[in-house]
Computed example of a mutant assay.
Amino acid sequence: MEVLCQSRPKPILPYAGVYRVIDFTLSNCVHSGIRSVAALVDHQRADMTRYFRRWFSANRSLGSLTVLHPRNASYQGTADAVYRNLDYLSRQDSDTVVVLAGDHVYNMDYRGMLDFHRAAEADATVGVVRVPITEAHRFGTVVTEPDGRIAEFVEKSSRPKSDIASMGIYIFNKSLLEAYVTEDAADPSSRHDFGYAILPRILRKGELFAYEFKGYWQDIGTVEAYYEAHMDLLGEKPRVRLESTPPLLSDRKVSIGRSGGERGYVVNSLVGPGCVIEGYVENSILSPGVRVAKFAEVRDSILMAHSRVGYHSVIDRCILDERVDVGELCYIGFGNTTSQAERDITLLGKGVTVPGHTVVGRSCVVSPKAGLGSFPGRSVPSGSVIPLPVP
């Protein structure tokens, strides 16, 4: 995700052309009746703060949105972030705290999980979802008793015993959370992280439960996951529905259609406002202002705002970041799909300019702002990185 996140933090990556990933978590709070939210930000905090302010200005139904960033050194982990803002937490009236991640795609009413937490008389409750066992190593995994009590929790095991994965959603009794993060802060050997430190500590000493979420959920921690979260928007029965009720809220009034553009042909795609499509687009998501020239083809791809595809060029199974300019008679994503298709995505970073008559293979990564001189011989073999890393 490094190429996509060089110019913006992961939570405000574009999603579905006109939204941001963080919109899901914020919208879930509003629709769950949560009226007081604190956003703990560190990496690229200025960009995050600006977005939160715009979002809150457009969505006043959220009672308060407080942005908290470290006053000196960076946060050392998720638990450390909470510990260093205990003064804020102590001023809140609620005796229950919901801790959420900002880089997940899902629609969830947290009230069901809160009811479960209270009924179980838990010290803490972890939101969990079932994932393919081949993907479980990316997450904390749990082994549960029939009543939902967690018997074992392991963060990102190389050999997970379970396909029940932590969603990075936690509910704590406030007084216990304060005690646990304070105890953790005094431990010099701790990683100061909820998954690695706090949850194992609660498992040893208290009552830790799992609440299984049955809906769609995707952690966009990898390029492949980010791509799949977009492809899940498409088809006759998409796994993610933007037209759902209650609605997904953003920092502005937005809309994206399943067809559009001018004079072109669009099949099973989402097209943002202001796109000009004179070629062919299939199974793709186009952000506002994208231009697809005559006889050009875009297939199974994500094109971010103001990207341009030149005359007779092909974009196949790619992600093009904002303001990518592909010249005429190019083929980006050239080659046969392997049996491990999830590794075949070609990624062009923000502001890349691809000269005409260039072929770029599958599984390539082109770093942001790569220009005309970055494509020697106008042919880039599959699996290449441009510019090449310094030895």
Rank of each mutant, 00 (worst) to 15 (best):
Q6V: 14
R8E: 09
P11S: 11
A16F: 01
G17T: 03
L26H: 01
N28L: 06
A39N: 05
H43L: 12
L62T: 03
G63L: 12
L68Q: 04
P70Y: 06
R71Y: 10
S74R: 14
S74P: 02
Q76S: 14
N85G: 08
Q92T: 12
Q92A: 13
D93A: 13
V97D: 02
V99W: 08
H104I: 07
V105T: 10
N107A: 15
N107G: 10
M108D: 00
L114G: 05
A119L: 11
D123T: 06
T125Y: 00
V128P: 02
I133E: 11
I133G: 09
T141F: 01
V143A: 05
V143R: 04
P146F: 00
A151L: 09
K156P: 04
R159E: 14
P160D: 09
P160Y: 04
Y170H: 08
K174T: 07
L176M: 12
L176V: 08
T182K: 14
D184K: 04
P188T: 04
R191M: 13
D193G: 11
G195K: 00
Y196K: 12
L203F: 06
K205L: 11
W217D: 02
D219G: 07
Y226C: 03
H230A: 10
H230K: 11
M231Y: 07
R239V: 05
P246A: 07
G261Y: 00
G264M: 05
P273G: 06
C275Y: 03
Y280P: 04
Y280Q: 08
S284Q: 05
I285L: 08
R291M: 10
R291P: 00
F295K: 10
A296D: 04
E297Q: 12
S313T: 06
I315G: 01
R317Q: 13
D321L: 05
E328M: 10
F334L: 15
Q340D: 13
A341V: 13
A341W: 15
I345W: 01
T346M: 04
G349N: 04
V354C: 05
V359M: 08
C364A: 05
V365C: 09
V366A: 01
V366E: 02
G371W: 15
G373V: 12
F375I: 02
P387N: 06
